[in-house]
Design a protein around this nucleic acid. Sequence first.
DNA 1: ACAAAAATATGAGATATCTCACATTTTGAG
DNA 2: CTCAAAATGTGAGATATCTCATATTTTTGT
Lengths: 223, 223
Amino acid sequence: MKVYKNEKRKDYLKEHSIAHLFSFPIEEFIEVHEYQRDEWIIQEGTRPDFLFFVIEGKAKIYVTHHNGKVSLINFINANDYIGEMELLHEVYYTKGIQTSTKTICFAIPLHRCRTQLLEDVTFLRELTKFLSVKATQMAAKYSQSLAFPLENRLADFILQTADEGFYKEKHVTVCDFLGVSYRHLLHVLAQFCDKGYLQKEGRHYRIQQYQPLYELAGVLRNK
Amino acid sequence: MKVYKNEKRKDYLKEHSIAHLFSFPIEEFIEVHEYQRDEWIIQEGTRPDFLFFVIEGKAKIYVTHHNGKVSLINFINANDYIGEMELLHEVYYTKGIQTSTKTICFAIPLHRCRTQLLEDVTFLRELTKFLSVKATQMAAKYSQSLAFPLENRLADFILQTADEGFYKEKHVTVCDFLGVSYRHLLHVLAQFCDKGYLQKEGRHYRIQQYQPLYELAGVLRNK
DNA sequence: ACAAAAATATGAGATATCTCACATTTTGAG
DNA sequence: CTCAAAATGTGAGATATCTCATATTTTTGT
C-alpha cells in the first residue's frame, strides 16, 4: 500500500472531490491510499482505522466460515464506502476486503473524525442511502439463492458481467460469489454450451444466444 | 386496521415516546395504527404512504418470486422501522409486510414529513444504524445459506426461537424462512428426533440434547 | 527460466434437496 | 357446529449440488 503525499495527494483530492458528501471540511483529514491488485485493504477480523471511500478500482468482500468455505459477499466499486460498519458499531466482525485491480481510496481516520461524521447530516444521508441499497441487494441475493437453481443465477451473472459479448470471469471467483462448487459451475456452463447459448473460445465464452439467457435471468426479478 | 384517536392515541404516544429519535417535534404528525394478526401492513408491490415504527407485535417481510416461490426475508419486531426504503428511494420494489401477532405501529406520513426526516441528524443516525444491522444480517444469512446445509441452519433457528425448551414454530413459515421445501424440513427434523436431539410431543418438539444442536449451530459463526 | 502455486478440467459416486401424489388433522369463518 | 382451507405428515423417485481424486495448463515469484 502506498500513501500519496503533497502534490499527488492534492491532485487526487481536487480531481475527485468528495467535499459535497460532507458538511464540514473533510479534505484536510483525508489520506489518499493506493492498493495494488490482490492486496488486502482490510484483513478479516481486524478493525480498520479508517473509513474508506473508493475513487478508482474494484474490490471484493470476503468472509471465511468455520468449515473453511469462503464466501464472496459482494463486489465493491468506485464511490462505495468501506469500513462504515466499524464506524457505526463498536463491536463488529470485520469482513476481509481484497482488491481485484489497482485501487485508490480516500481514507478518513476514524479516531479524528468519528464524532463529526456521526453528527453530519449530509454524510449520514448519503450513507443511509448507500446502506439501504446494500441491504436491499443482499436481501435480493439471499432470497434468490434459495429460490432458484444455479442455472438462473448464473445466466443473470453472465449477462451482468459480459463484456462485448464475451463472458470472461474467473471460475474460482464466481464459485465463491454464487456459492457453488467449482465442479458444479463447470457442469452448468457445459450445459449452456451444449444448448448453444454459449460457445467456448480458449478460456472465454462467447454468448451465442441472448434470448434464452434473458429468460433464465428474468425469473429472478420480482413478481 | 384501526387508527387510534384522542385519548388512546395520546396514551400510546406518551407510553412509548419516540421523541428522542428525532430532533424536531414529530409527535403531532404520528398516527397510531393497530393491525390484527395476519393482516398486511404493506401490500407487496404497493408504495406505502407512511414510515412505520413498530411499538408492539411481530411481523414478517415477504417477497414473491416469478416461479411462485415465496421467501420470508426477515422478521420484524418492536423498535424496527418499516417502509424506510420507500422514504429513501423514489423507485423501489416494495416487499409485503404481514403481522404474525396483533401489532401496533406509529405511522409517520411521508408526504408531510419526508423533507424534515431527511434533514434530521438524530433520525438519520438511528436509521443508519438500523440499516447497517439489517445489511449485516442479510449478508450473514446469505453466505450461510450457501455455505451450510439445512441441518446447521435449522439447529441455529431452533435454538434462537425455542421457548422454555420447546420448539413450536410453524413448519410452513420456517420453510419460507430457511428456503427449503416442506418435505425436506420434516426430513431433517425427523433426523434430529432419531438422533435424540429433539423429541416430538404433539405438534411441538422438546429439546432433549442442547450440546449437539449448539455444535451444529456453532459452525455458522465466523472463523 | 524454473519451480511452486493457482486455475482449469473431468469422471464417478454420494448427499442434500425438490417435486408430486396423497392422507390426516387442525383451524377459522360464518 | 360445519365445512373449507390451512397445516401436518409420509412415500418414492428425480434433480441439483457436493466431494474427492487426479491430470493438465497457466500464472507468479524469484
